[in-house]
């Protein structure tokens, strides 16, 4: 109580402080989600070494509606994380965030300008499109 640190609650709430804070939250979430998928995926594909039967048993579990939904989420996470990752790469190298000057009221920060905001929403939109295309491929065949 006395310490009054916001703690992990501060990480988990993406609704305050605008688009950049939302992107921070989603970058973390998708990073961890992709790591979980990646580990599971390496275990899943290892079934190949136990022959055709083991591989097809694995496919019977993963190539289901639930499995396809998981893959759609993975595709969305991949695209958002990659696109937003490129934005962070650029911004963290000091590009696209404006330059310091003489602040005037109402003190709009240049680093949170329209460019960065647009990149964030474009990343979200690309992820949504990729998920739709993924759904088309995954569910379109059957």
């Amino acid at each position: 109580m006395k310490e009054n640190r916001e703690g992990i609650k501060g990480w988990l709430n993406p609704t305050r402080y605008g688009a950049n804070r939302f992107a921070y939250w989603l970058q973390r979430l998708t990073g961890l989600g992709l790591l979980a998928y990646f580990i599971a995926h390496v275990i899943e594909t290892s079934n190949i070494v136990y022959g055709k039967n083991a591989w097809e048993k694995m496919l019977a579990v993963t190539q289901t509606t639930e499995g396809h939904i998981v893959l759609m989420v993975v595709i969305g996470m991949c695209v958002f994380h990659a696109a937003n990752g490129v934005r962070l790469y650029i911004a963290e190298h000091g590009k696209g965030i404006g330059r310091p000057g003489r602040p005037e009221y109402p003190y709009k920060p240049t680093s949170l300008g329209l460019g960065m905001k647009a990149c964030i929403w474009v990343s979200v939109a690309l992820a949504a499109l990729a998920m739709m295309y993924g759904a088309y491929v995954l569910f379109g065949e059957v």
Partner: peptide, 16 residues
Amino acid sequence: AVIVYGTRTILLASMM
């Protein structure tokens, strides 16, 4: 651990 386990899959599968 992940790299070793995955590399094992790649090596074994490519020799099957």
